[in-house]
């Protein structure tokens, strides 16, 4: 039962990552990210239940609050302040992005095989999903123009890393998770400030405008 739920959560994790790449509306991206956060929290809770580990449950609670509550809320606040609601012209078009995502997922599965072989358990077998999400997140950040898309990309990367950590080790020490979460929150806050300032200076949030700052 737990295994099936775990597989379901992992599937949801990957599906939402691909969905983020597919949708153009920025508000839809945030919704998908929230769903992905919920899937990640599910994974953590399931692992905590399976190992009967209170600390992991606490970590799961922290992850849940951050990824379902705080981060989407911050992103929606950013979105409310900027006029563009759509990713109009990504550097790589949607169809090609889908193909790239497929290739990256394939790469993630082959590259993660040695890791899975280390401890072949149902949880570890799902770890490549995390790798795939990391790569897709990077791809998103590298190919989208809007600042919000890039924040979402960075958050995907983090979700992927967290998923790998949970799945491969069966729970992350509280100290590590707290450190990572604090980092992430800081990154999002910085990007939020950046977006607001960008809009104030350039009237848009196309990050390519930043090139003007380079001497």
């Amino acid at each position: 039962m737990t295994d099936q739920l775990l597989d379901l959560a992992c599937g949801l994790l990957l599906l939402t990552a691909v969905g983020v790449l597919w949708r153009r509306e920025l508000s839809a991206l945030i919704t998908l990210l929230t769903v992905q956060g919920a899937a990640l929290t599910c994974i953590a809770v399931l692992l905590a239940v399976e190992h009967r580990h209170a600390e992991t449950l606490f970590v799961a609670a922290v992850v849940g609050i951050l990824k379902i509550g705080v981060l989407p809320w911050l992103l929606r606040r950013v979105l409310a302040r900027i006029p563009e609601a759509r990713e109009t012209a990504p550097l790589v078009n949607i169809a090609a992005s889908m193909l790239a995502a497929a290739a990256l997922t394939l790469l993630a599965y082959t590259a993660a095989r040695p890791l899975v072989d280390l401890a072949p358990s149902p949880t570890a077998r799902a770890a490549p999903v995390g790798f795939a999400v990391v790569l897709i997140g990077f791809f998103l950040a590298a190919t989208r123009r809007r600042a919000v898309s890039q924040i979402v990309g960075v958050l995907l990367v983090d979700n992927g890393i967290a998923a790998v950590a949970f799945l491969a080790t069966g729970g992350v020490p509280l100290v590590v998770e707290l450190g990572v979460s604090a980092d992430l929150l800081l990154a999002v806050l910085v990007l939020q400030v950046l977006t607001t300032r960008l809009r104030a200076v350039f009237g848009g949030t196309d990050l390519d405008d930043l090139r003007e700052l380079h001497d």
Binding site: L91, F138, A141, A142, T143, R145, Q150, G153, L207, D208, L210, R211, E212, L213, H214
Partner: peptide
Amino acid sequence: ANGSVHRYL
């Protein structure tokens, strides 16, 4: 480093 964030990513 030409200043493009996309390039860095």
